[in-house]
Design a protein around this nucleic acid. Structure first.
Lengths: 260, 260
DNA sequence: GCAACCATTTTTGTATGCAAAAGGTAATCG
DNA sequence: CGATTACCTTTTGCATACAAAAATGGTTGC
């Protein structure tokens, strides 16, 4: 595991000017573009895209310096990420990127199953032609990404489910699906072996087909099967363990240290 | 609606001593008893138990003074409550107790249905004798509370579902159920007419019965039916509206003002 | 060489200070 | 008399300050 740590840029300590709500003209979004939210968003992406790997320490002031904000804001962002399960926050010992155990992973998958079931049963037979086109296009993207690195594939696969959730128009459902799917990303980053999510694309196609014809039961069945498959391929694959003990064992053996 | 506001206690301004982690001996819980968490918990209870009513303003420094902590901590607690949907947080305009619209209420109910379905399908046929006893006891409590105020009944009804979720052992599912059920409390506080949740007790009993004999499908069906019933009784009850317009209409009519 | 102890440095938890924004009130103009 | 503006107050958003806790590193004793 990466027990690495972010390191301070040593140019540090230029006195920070107090800016507030600079309201950049290019920002036309209605969304909350507060500074905390930017910090949150930045860290979120860095974690989900695996630039920050599970287990990495996340010191408040380092991040603050990096992003040009004070620890106050970083702290708030980190505490939100901790609620969402992407960051682990130990009292008096700071934050690090979450490193879910197999048991936690199982929990997330179980909840996800139920949520995704809700999504497809809301969507079956109610998707517009345009929405179906968007989904088809997305799957094509996934197909194209198959060749390239696993990270890209994992991200796109997750986004497929988020897109489905968005189409329900239910904000809470969106938030929950986003949460479980980003946590799944972490899980896959830790436990999945390379190429393990490749075959998922065809399953996505099948789900779209069932939604198109309005067969809610079939869609739910397919979705459940799909998630079970992903979970099995990734989690239960015996060789997939990246637990520190298992990784160290062969090295320890080579050096005459005890591998038990 | 209550456009009231918390008011400062005018004794204010005793200089705050800087205490940290006083570690009260009576606190044996393993849970995070940090000060932010205490503030969060306090506000959470006050909202769910309807001491703070939907729409009420929640100024940071007032709360801070009341609880003996700085605005920093209050702020963090409020932002967490906002994520959970119990507090509405408008940029530069502060926090107030959330006042869900009918549409939001519908969303929460829909998601809740799916989550509760997951709960019962995980639990069916797997409850120990002791767990069943706990549930029976709880329903008896609910029954006893029927006579007294609606607030007590609503709280107990919510706790029944939370208890079920706890029995799954799935921490994420617990969190989600707690979240949707506390939001539902808010919704019921706003929209339900008195006594609307009374008949729910027998439905709880039926659900327990189905779980006991291990009939997952029947339990899921009953749960769905139960939630639909609650939603209908509360939300769709035409006279139940407590929207400001509807409340004002009769008065306006009497004063010769336009009630449209 | 290894464990225990103390000094030093880093990092967290929390309060406070200050500027921007919102809200309120009084004065001004139509 | 109603709308507008100028001024003041309150409240938010954010940075910073400072003490407690943990991590680090070096020293001593064994």
């Amino acid at each position: 595991m990466s027990s690495m740590k972010l390191h301070k840029t040593s140019d540090a300590k230029r006195p920070r000017l107090k800016q507030r709500s600079v309201e950049v003209a290019t920002e036309k979004e209605t969304a909350p573009a507060s500074r905390v939210h930017s910090v949150y968003r930045t860290l979120w992406r860095a974690i989900v895209e695996q630039a920050l790997q599970p287990g990495m320490k996340l010191p408040e002031d380092t991040i603050g310096e990096q992003l040009g904000v004070s620890r106050t804001l970083v702290r708030e962002a980190l505490s939100r990420l901790a609620i969402e399960g992407l960051v682990e926050l130990k009292p008096n010992r700071g934050a690090s990127v979450a490193h879910p155990t197999i048991e936690e992973a199982r929990e997330v998958f179980d909840v996800r199953c139920g949520l995704e079931r809700t999504v497809v049963s809301m969507l079956a037979g109610r998707l517009s032609a345009q929405q179906l086109k968007i989904l088809d296009a997305h799957v094509q993207l996934e197909e194209a990404a198959q060749g390239r690195g696993g990270a890209e594939s994992i991200r796109l696969a997750g986004e497929f489910h988020v897109k489905l959730a968005e189409m329900t128009g239910n904000a809470l459902l969106q938030r929950y699906i986003l949460e479980v799917s980003s946590r799944c990303t972490l899980v896959l980053a830790i436990y999945s072996r390379p190429h393990s999510s490749e075959c998922a694309v065809s399953e996505h196609r099948q789900i779209i087909a069932a939604l198109r014809v309005g067969d809610a039961n079939e869609a739910a069945r397919l979705m459940e099967h799909h998630l079970q498959a992903v979970a099995t391929r990734a989690l239960l694959a015996p060789r997939a363990s990246k637990e520190i003990a298992d990784l160290l064992a062969p090295y320890a053996e080579g050096e005459g240290l005890r591998p038990w």
